[in-house]
Design a protein around this nucleic acid. Sequence first.
DNA 1: AATGAAAGCAACCGCGAAGTA
DNA 2: ATACTTCGCGGTTGCTTTCAT
Length: 246
Amino acid sequence: MYWGVMGGAEERWRKGPWTPEEDRLLVHHVNLHGEGRWNSVATLSGLKRNGKSCRLRWVNYLRPDLKRGRITPHEETIILDLHARWGNRWSTIARSLPGRTDNEIKNHWRTHFKKKSKVSLDESTKLKTKLLKRQKFQQEQRLQQQQLLDQVQQNEADMKKIMSLVVEESTESSPTMVVREEEEEEEESLIHGMILLNGWFYAPAADHQSSMINQDVGMWDGLWNLDDVHGTNFSATYHQAPCLNY
DNA sequence: AATGAAAGCAACCGCGAAGTA
DNA sequence: ATACTTCGCGGTTGCTTTCAT
């Protein structure tokens, strides 16, 4: 056991391993006042520990909901899976493992998987390349779709313009209301037809794109499945590549 | 049995985000 | 708007235990 000096003041804090008596004091304090306000723990409980140390001891060791014992194979699978998705975001990973702390998971990862991950570095590099490729492709897709949309809107506007001219001319030659109504209906359907025609016109290209997209999605299927193994809603960030941090 | 290396784990440190006066 | 405090996170350290020779 040793003593630390905090903030240059005369106030001294105990450091190093916690004694059973300190644990008892801390548990008693939390039972009485609840979690939080860790910096006031020292004054209120008589512990000679700083707030940070108290919080850490409580969160990582004394909390009653902590699960003791070794990490199970099932938990390992989850850790591996979530680490592939979020990288070293231990607290995020820990939220998916009730009773396990970020520190515990971090330690477990470092001792059990760090070496293994080095071995599979090539695999992760390949994955990264794939992700970049896909991001680029999706960006191009969005750009093309926007251009297409602009073109359709432009065509629609042009057609309306043309049709209004046609209608004006025909009105001058045969100005009966019945005929005009029929013509208006025709005009509408013609415009829609043209739009549909327009749609059909570029449909093969769009089809080609969608088939490419499908192909692409298929290509990434494994990855998305991996991302969604535990039902976490990841679809909202569909266009984002999962965080990789190797 | 002795000893050095590796693994496991608790705890500390620095930093940034969030909250508060 | 700003300065200060508190909290939480990730990285790192160092002590203890286990394993191999």
